[in-house]
Design a protein around this nucleic acid. Sequence first.
DNA 1: CTTACTCATGTAAACGATTCCATGGAATCG
DNA 2: CGATTCCATGGAATCGTTTACATGAGTAAG
Lengths: 350, 350
Amino acid sequence: MNAVTIKDVASAAGVSVATASRVLSGHPATSPDSRAKVESAAKELGFMPNAQARSLRSTKTDSIALLISDVRNPYFSDLAHAVEQHARAAGLMTFIGNANEDAAQQDDFLATMLSRRVDGLVIVPQGLNEESNQPSEMMNRVLSSGIPTIFVDRALPSIQVPAITANSAQALDEAVATLHSLGHQKIAFIGGPKHASTALERYSAFDTALANNGLHADEALHFVGDFQPASGALAAQWLLDNPAKPSAVIIADAPMAIGALRVWRELGIRVGADLSVITFDEVDAMLIHDPPIATIGHDLSQMGKMAVQALREVMAGHQPEPEELISKFTLRPSVASAKATQVMEGKVRP
Amino acid sequence: MNAVTIKDVASAAGVSVATASRVLSGHPATSPDSRAKVESAAKELGFMPNAQARSLRSTKTDSIALLISDVRNPYFSDLAHAVEQHARAAGLMTFIGNANEDAAQQDDFLATMLSRRVDGLVIVPQGLNEESNQPSEMMNRVLSSGIPTIFVDRALPSIQVPAITANSAQALDEAVATLHSLGHQKIAFIGGPKHASTALERYSAFDTALANNGLHADEALHFVGDFQPASGALAAQWLLDNPAKPSAVIIADAPMAIGALRVWRELGIRVGADLSVITFDEVDAMLIHDPPIATIGHDLSQMGKMAVQALREVMAGHQPEPEELISKFTLRPSVASAKATQVMEGKVRP
DNA sequence: CTTACTCATGTAAACGATTCCATGGAATCG
DNA sequence: CGATTCCATGGAATCGTTTACATGAGTAAG
């Protein structure tokens, strides 16, 4: 392997390891002479410092961890990319971990990162345990360990950690108002699991939006999914079978939307004609869809930037304020007037 | 922070650090008695071993690195997910790095991983330097360092490293034959940059496929893109302006397809009617598209599995054979008979 | 010319684990 | 019963760096 150590460099340069170390890590107290000798020796030998030895002594690793639920979800891969780019600009390496919406994998990743002594943690929290209503044991350990941590996208209400979240109440309101003004009376909502903070907020923001627009909120119009494509597919069928015959639907994330859209297409339901659709997460797949899907979303690059900024604040010993991005509603042709929808009733349901 | 070390555990348990270490790392020579004492002490104190100290001494990190070009490309995020899951099953942590199709970022990531002494490397190589026709300096260092490495998805012809690749010649042939049988005479190809091995192979496999089907290969029907959405958008326009008036097109990756499809939709070109489209990479976005896009693709989960297997072989000191997955062509409604296309000529170009 | 101060350098002690080696007690065997 | 083997244990060396401290040369001030 790479058996060349700083000792080799030092002796090749004819100086002590201390001097070599000082030169290589940019310590000011070095003479131009030894600087030259050490640098050329290092280059000559192809010296590559051992990061573990270095951070064992210096107790910093210049790295952070990002815990998301799934890289395959375009929302999170966009976020991961943004976080990584901004961290990189600050000289920090980012470790990306998948929780797969699974508490065990989340804890596993956190344990590994704690062991590796990363300098900070950006977490999209998976929510509290459903029975105990507590954070997982490993999450507690992270929090009590004092390692700089921030939450992004979601927050855990009971836990005192700076968070960067998105507020979509206003956008949802706008979306519902738009649907209402187009004549839609029955609007369904395909939401996330009840243990995720974002999911809960969206259910209640949706109901509030209905109320604001003089519409009747009704549990029967909520579908409780799990943010994954398969549950979107189930929801698609549920919607068609729903006795209230909703003419419009709002979906709480992109993967569920992808699952649902596929089912509707296969069944011949014409989105934007038979059914009006609005989805959270402004990702590519929604824009190339024919017709393009109206979305409620926010700037992920911005969110990543704010997350890294906030984390660096914490790392510097400060206590940044929680910040909220305001989501934006973008109308697109997947939304049509309710008239068109009535046609569907006769067509797809005999 | 987490100031509890193995020393604390040892003294709490009333044994030496050596014994504590043996218990905690599962060494057989330990008595049930001390095992019990050490384990309970460790749990009590919330001991979390310092990974750097451990691997500094033991020279293994139980981690591998995966270098891809972009997490936001669904093809690669699917691959990353597969690699990660299989590595995880083998007790290995995966570090995912983005090259952003950029040699500098690639080298940066490799340097960091070399410093961190990962046990192995799975690389989607970015291709040789365009001027020197050589691998980058850092890549050379990786190769000469002797660290177990395999290539996945792409290969570098001149370099002797086990690779898991996909062969799409057969699928391309089938795709072209299908188009030809539907009456298409002019088929365009939107390819990748000339320095990527996969890109080159696909150009020539495409031309071979044309020849096999009695069609004339023509440079003027090649568009040289860069695998990114923006170049797909350019290609979309190029195709419409192409004097040969192609009635069908094959696109060499999903991001370019996404870029192109969006442009065509905005211009009112009806895919599957005005224009027949086949794309590489069987990703979600192609399946929810209306109409669904015919694809040439392979099983990424399988590819990830083979990559991890091959890497573990190398890590064990063996020399695995290079393996090739055979890509599959899947016909979908984005492909129609050439008749429909002739209609477009009148319609979209006055 | 002495004193004080700066500055580059080297020596050696950390950092927190693993692991080689020596030790001594218990168990086994002839 | 003495010799041999086995096995759990602790002491100490080790991995490759950084860094506190001591040193000695050079310089500026008095």
